[in-house]
Write a protein that binds this DNA or RNA. Structure first.
Lengths: 339, 339
DNA sequence: CTGAAAGCGCTAACAC
DNA sequence: GTGTTAGCGCTTTCAG
């Protein structure tokens, strides 16, 4: 059986209170007994039970992380960075993929609460904010990453999507494009909305008329983006550039182009969003708006731990700046049109 | 404050024992009181504390999952499938990336044990088996996925790597290749060894001399694979095909080819391993040896839960068959050599 | 059928 | 400095 605090106490000839004190470095104990207890703990290979200590009202040192899909490289990278920071600080993280399904979100949150996680980080993109409201009402520690809910005072870290969208579109405009399409995953989600707003603003600045025909919604699957891009390519007046609201969708549009025997960026320029592994792996390497995933992950866990330690700490919204990473998927329109 | 079993008991006018019984559906309680208690639980929005119940010796319903790197698509996909099955069965999963670092593995395992996870699934590729031995000695539930440790009797689910390597090489041989190289991530790891052994065997069968010059080791990063592949391409007698021991490495070799103004499969045929998202996304779509990731994830959690429920259940090794997925990265050597 | 009570491993007053 | 003791929320005999 695993050693308990009683075993240590007995072996060391002290009381369990004393052992507890040396474990938690509280109270005052003589150097001598401290050393002895420590030695015994070593010998017995004693590990305090987080479960028992949690029951007495202490933390469980575990965080919940809700995201749409771990198999999506963007979220996998987010998860990795959250995990890294959490581990640094002694926390574990329970990850739950929800597929953006409301029911699963609810179930997972309730599960996480039963397990007494100290806080929950949410990256999932619900349209619905009742879940968040509930959590807030119960004063349960929550923080958002890569998604926004400006109507609620919740700690959040995200990238400025408006600027990101603006960057993508401006870059394309600077390269001479005027027929610029957008493919977004879901216009109901804040970040998509903002990216599109940034895009529109860039168009306006450049005096280009906004054409609603050019902004399309796709499912989150690459095949769907491919399909949507394909339709646009086959239209009588195809765009010369497409801004895909994330790298995964961008790969779909690149595939659509290739399938038609055309080339990127020769026949169509493409810019993505996120700067995941994918951007470096596809051909051509993708020009994309980078989110500082590492930093974002780090910041959310710092945020949530702050809340855990002080439930009344003032809420923060940290918005980071995206950055345009230029690779090879954009050129001037018509530049190599005839190869 | 959160409602406890006492609150429910008081409200329902029964003892906590009775409430406990209706929660766990143990003992015998009248339909009447059962209904009443259930109603009160609803009203109070009562959720039993997993922590408290774990302290009494019951399970925590959480699993640990150790893997090298969540940001690697293969492992992200594994994690996703493990997570799915675990949730189905009411378990949560704590994920830990170890970067294949022994120290981190140890730390994480010890952390997971302090948190009383019910079992640990290991996908990480330690060369060292002492950790596993320790776990086994303590009779702690462990299961391996996508890695092997045949010297220890541990529940495992993996793909037959020998056959996989054989498939990859045979396919290439059938296409007429004779100068076939391999890039592996780490020859000390079982699965790499086996894949290479399968490759050698296929060569032998075909009467092709084995040339150790053609099997190279690379770091796990794509840039490294690119570098290694580049060296081979620049050699006086470059291979006409490369078998990359995973899809990520394969993307590296494709990049190396492209960087030299050559093409896949025109100048070099490539076959990968794993069949992750990457395989469908790169250009050309990658011919690769598929691992049944979904099933594998499902099976390990079934395995580990079996062990949890019966620590003495006989160990199982479930080895699944890989499958060659033919896409467009392989052609006959020289076929389009001059475009 | 239902309840009283012991105990899971640990923390935190409060004594000594 | 160190020990006693009362919980934390729940499960589980064992009586009744």
């Amino acid at each position: 059986m695993k050693a308990t605090i009683y075993d240590v106490a007995k072996q060391a000839g002290v009381s369990i209170a004393t052992v507890s004190k040396v474990i938690n470095q509280t109270g005052r104990i003589s150097e001598e007994t401290r050393a002895k207890v420590n030695r015994i703990m070593q010998e017995l290979n004693y590990q305090p039970s987080v479960v028992a200590s949690a029951l007495t009202g202490k933390q469980t040192y575990t965080l919940g992380l809700l995201l749409p899909d771990l198999a999506n490289p963007f979220f996998a990278e987010i998860a990795r960075s959250v995990e890294d920071r959490a581990h640094e600080l002694g926390f574990s993280v329970m990850i739950c993929s929800t597929d953006n399904n409301l029911l699963r979100e609810e179930r997972n949150i309730s599960l996480l609460k039963q397990k007494s996680v100290d806080g929950i980080i949410i990256a999932t993109g619900v349209r619905n904010d009742t879940i968040l409201k509930d959590l807030k009402k119960q004063n349960f520690p929550v923080a958002l990453i890569a998604r926004d809910m400006p109507s609620l005072a919740i700690d959040t870290v995200l990238v400025d999507d408006f600027i990101g969208g603006h960057m993508a579109a401006s870059h394309l405009i600077e390269q001479g494009h005027r027929q610029i399409a957008v493919i977004a995953e879901d216009t109901l989600v804040m970040s998509s909305k903002e990216r599109i707003r940034g895009y529109r603003f860039a168009l306006e600045e450049a005096g280009i008329a906004y054409n609603p025909e050019l902004v399309r919604i796709s499912d989150f699957k690459v095949t769907d983006a491919k399909q949507v891009a394909g339709e646009m390519l086959d239209s009588p007046e195809p765009p010369t550039a497409i801004f895909a609201c994330n790298d995964l969708l961008a790969t779909g549009v690149i595939q659509a182009v290739r399938e038609r025997g055309l080339s990127v960026p020769g026949d169509l320029s493409v810019v993505g969003f996120d700067n995941t592994l994918l951007a470096t792996i596809i051909d051509p390497p993708l020009t994309t708006v980078a989110q500082p995933i590492q930093e974002m992950g780090q910041r959310v866990v710092d945020l949530i731990i702050r809340i855990i330690n002080d439930k009344n700490s003032t809420k923060q919204r940290v918005v980071m700046l995206p950055e345009l990473v230029i690779r090879s998927s954009v050129s001037r329109p018509g530049e190599y049109r005839n190869k």
